[in-house]
């Protein structure tokens, strides 16, 4: 389930050859609390057909229990994988998700928005970073 291409069914060896020469791009989300960072990433994965049926079924089930979208599928649950994140409806720690296109493999880091969720050590690293910039 990487990306949709007719080549997969028609000529898999050609497809594999094409995909040997992909680049790699790492990106991360930045923003304030409840801006919709995780929901955006969830939506991206959903729209690019990166979600398997069994994963989506699990999300639908969980959305009823802990979702923040009033019964609708809460796509943020795709990245908020920890129990306490799902219960509180926030991202506590960074999550990594992956998808790829014909030209690139992408690594997405979905980050927390609450300053409080950053541990003391993480904050000190950030401070040092800010100072060095």
């Amino acid at each position: 389930m990487a990306n949709q291409s007719n080549l997969i069914a028609d000529n898999i060896e050609e497809y594999l050859k094409q995909h040997e020469n992909k680049g790699l791009l790492r990106l991360l989300t930045c923003g304030s609390v409840d801006d919709g960072k995780s929901t955006l990433i969830g939506r991206l994965l959903y729209d690019s057909k990166m979600i398997f049926e069994d994963q989506l079924a699990a999300i639908e089930q969980d959305s009823k229990k802990v979702g923040t979208q009033g019964g609708e599928v809460d796509l943020a649950l795709l990245v908020d994988g920890l129990q306490s994140e799902r219960e509180q409806g926030i991202t506590i720690d960074v999550a990594y998700r992956y998808f790829s296109t014909d030209r690139r493999k992408f690594i997405i880091a979905d980050t927390p928005g609450h300053e409080q969720t950053w541990s003391v050590s993480q904050r000190s690293v950030l401070k040092r970073l800010k100072r060095s910039i």
Partner: peptide
């Protein structure tokens, strides 16, 4: 690889232990 790319379920679906509960 072809089969994997065309399938609609995740690889862990075949594992009984992951389906015990959500967390």
């Amino acid at each position: 690889i072809q089969e994997m790319l065309l399938t609609t379920t995740s690889e862990r679906q075949g594992r009984v232990i992951d389906q015990d509960s959500s967390g």
